[in-house]
Design a binder for these strands. Structure first.
Lengths: 210, 210
DNA sequence: TAGATTGTTAATCGATTAACAATC
DNA sequence: TAGATTGTTAATCGATTAACAATC
């Protein structure tokens, strides 16, 4: 039924368009165009139209796109018109920062639980949520719906944690540890790699002769 | 002199290969192959060889690559055989987490200063570094070498902060705010966008029918 | 020498861009 | 109607993969 394979970058761009559409909605603007979206989001009008074309027709020729309509359409495509239950594994500085970050809840990603190995941390409360011991993870997943797991542990323990997550049946992982996780094909992993981004900047500086 | 344009993804992969080479160095392994590197890093042997070929010849036909030699070569290509001076702008939860993260210093990225707008935070000490008021930023950059700026402020203030960074003459920005920054062409920006990564996972779940 | 593995070229694949008919 | 902007096709561009001669 679903036709051509859709490039991941197209989804990422759609998510960026969506942010801009939210802004427009707030300002009360009713109509926009592929050109306008492109200018603000650093894309091109052809690209915007192509990205949308993967999923259907959302505009009116000669007119443009209805802001609210397009917002709703993209929200539904990505799955942001529903909520997702996520768990955070690792209650270090970064894990704590993620729990405190309100941007998640705004987009429908609800942090339902936090886990850590360190006995010293277990029982502590972050943003109203009690840190649970990692040993109780499988038990927790059995009893509760968990859509995604966020791994925020050290590189050393990341693979072990990933194995645990996979075994529990969770199919989506957001990984902050600077390692390539080994997971089955039906488990989807995204890596947020701060170091590598800094390193490409370093390369840029070197290549420009700094 | 430098020939063909090198794709950014190739640099990212080289950074991943480098991590693995460091592991091999630690275990004392002397020789490796494009096949071995590929298996561990989720690449292919042809890709590994192609990525290296952009920069020269580093292996020995029929034998493979000297682990230490290749490690040094890639380090030098990316610019990780020297140190970089970075500043963090934004002392919220995430900014604080980045300052505490030891992975930066390990790779030669030294956090030299932290800035924030909130008067309440100015003067506080994070990891031995005093938070400075943003008003003193330009002054600081004039007096100290700063290679890169890390923007960890809210989406609302990110563009204003980026303007300030650009005006100060810094040419490389790592942006954590969920906005598309508008910057001159000679300023290089990398975005670490946690939300968009979660959103592509959401799309994956939706498209697989969850 | 036989086996292994590189460096590189050519073929393939996939994504972006340009162009334009359709249509408001 | 004239001007604007979509949806879509075809052309272009760029990155990945396959294949193999070179060489240890």
């Amino acid at each position: 039924m679903k036709a051509a394979k859709i490039p991941e970058v197209a989804i990422m761009r759609l998510a960026v368009y969506l942010r801009y559409l939210l802004q427009l909605k707030k300002t009360g603007q009713k109509i926009t165009s592929s050109k306008e979206i492109a200018t603000i989001t650093g894309s091109t009008s052809a690209q915007v139209r192509k990205d949308l074309a993967y999923f259907g027709e959302f505009g009116v020729r000669g007119v443009g796109y209805d802001v609210e309509g397009l917002y709703n359409a993209i929200s539904h495509i990505i799955g942001l018109d529903r909520s997702w239950d996520i768990v955070i594994i690792g209650a270090g500085h970064l894990g704590g920062a993620l729990v405190s970050y309100s941007g998640f809840a705004d987009r429908g990603f609800n942090i339902k639980a936090i886990f850590d190995i360190a006995p010293a941390k277990v029982g502590n409360v972050v943003e109203g949520k009690k840190i649970q011991k990692i040993d109780s993870f499988s038990e927790y997943v059995k009893k509760n719906k968990v859509d995604m797991a966020v791994i925020v542990v050290s590189g050393d323990s990341a693979q072990k944690v990933a194995d645990l997550v996979v075994k529990s049946g969770i199919k989506a992982i957001l990984n902050f540890a600077p390692v390539v996780l080994n997971t089955p094909l039906d488990v989807e992993v995204r890596n947020v790699d701060v170091s590598i981004n800094l390193e490409t900047l370093a390369y840029y500086m070197v290549s420009k002769g700094s």
